[in-house]
Design a protein around this nucleic acid. Sequence first.
DNA 1: CCTGAAGTATAACCTATGTTACATCATCGG
DNA 2: CCGATGATGTAACATAGGTTATACTTCAGG
Lengths: 258, 258
Amino acid sequence: MNIEGTRQVQGGIATDLKPAMSASPLVRKLGALCLLSEEEIEFLEGLQNNTLNADRGRDFIVEGKDLRTTFIVIEGWAIRYSVLSNGRRQILSYALPGDILGLHVNFRATATYSASALTPLKLSVVDPRRVIEISQKFPIIAAGLSWCTAREFAILGDQAVRLGRLSARQRLAHLFLELWHRFALIGDNNGDWLEIPMTQQDLADTLGMSLVHTNRSLKSLRDIDLISVEKDHVRLNNVKALIEMSEFNPEHLSEFEI
Amino acid sequence: MNIEGTRQVQGGIATDLKPAMSASPLVRKLGALCLLSEEEIEFLEGLQNNTLNADRGRDFIVEGKDLRTTFIVIEGWAIRYSVLSNGRRQILSYALPGDILGLHVNFRATATYSASALTPLKLSVVDPRRVIEISQKFPIIAAGLSWCTAREFAILGDQAVRLGRLSARQRLAHLFLELWHRFALIGDNNGDWLEIPMTQQDLADTLGMSLVHTNRSLKSLRDIDLISVEKDHVRLNNVKALIEMSEFNPEHLSEFEI
DNA sequence: CCTGAAGTATAACCTATGTTACATCATCGG
DNA sequence: CCGATGATGTAACATAGGTTATACTTCAGG
């Protein structure tokens, strides 16, 4: 909604200036916050030179194991999750292109979560020491990363609200809205259609529900015509109504005025 | 109650040892990670000069309003929470002495959560620009703050696991264990006894349950003798059993090897 | 073109948790 | 010392959501 506006601004800038176009999603994301200098863009792109491809289902961070790497998502979706000893899984968050995993990894030796590729995934692998370097040499980028961190907190906080205080149907709607708004920011939005590469089991593990009830609740959202579902895609038929019924707060994901 | 106690400890130490001892909880917390230089300690203490007292129940961060301040908890408990339009509240996390609220506030203009004093609270009020200053001048402190951030993520992730995948009794046990371990780090642990300044309604709002069911579940934990309850305190009668039954993972809160 | 594996759909039944209602117990200002 | 207010305890009943079971559908690989 109000993100529409910002996306267009972004798009406008992107078509005008060359470098931003070929830019990695991270540069596009940070570039949406404030103009980046050539030097800053170059540094950010250079940071992402070392890439890694992961097949669907491949874990690249494993809870309890050493983690001394920062990953930046270039293409595809990843999930952050945790598995209990009884086998139940809780997906904590989705990482989309431009998102960073392990930004604050410097000291902490062991991962407190696992991460795996939900779709074929292209990651860049960054030495966290280079992240530290940033704060000294590129204050603007540092501020951008700090904003990313605040945003991750907001997203995870929303996830807690979903899990703690929303009904099954609300949780689904709320999650779809979150993803829809997040895609809007990186300019990858496709009208009301939203790519949903996860299975219903994944959705269930995200929203703290059973597979059966996830299916039931999806159906009931379809029945009242709030969403339409097609292979790997969901259409948000009435964003306003969805926002209202799910108590979604778009402000948590909107940009800020500098 | 035990705030009395901890204050005394603090006070007691303060009279004994000069520098490290009169230290603020934040200095103690970071000092537990790595030795801090005199200069670093001085800077951190200076950072916290500007203090503010808040009565129980007083909101000092309000969701949706401008937030351009960083707060450090000096004494007492705070909660971070979010209220839905239907009036339901979800408590996201507890802030204990040494914890920082709004560390990544620089850019983002509006708060995505509220925060309020759960007990009489002493906060220090910090200009976020001074936080930025840190990363340039005090790399060790910057690394410590980065570790704090990673830890907050781990704690919030655990909260999501609780809400999404644990039963009511497990949630209670899991939360108590989290708090117990967190107090252990700042050295304010009182044996198996744990201060619980929150009401059962607060607990319910933390764990995504109703007040009645919170009461029921507490009783059932008492009945099987895993905990004992006394005014504002809980005794963890069998930490090992509690860890097992609640699938708590102490690693998420443990320190790291440098 | 068939087969098996993974995903989706749906029904029937069960249980954990929510809701409403009320009693009891502290605490605190007057 | 009293009454009001907020917190805790518990019972009875209602329901959202979990579980088990079984089809159906898609799709990749032989």
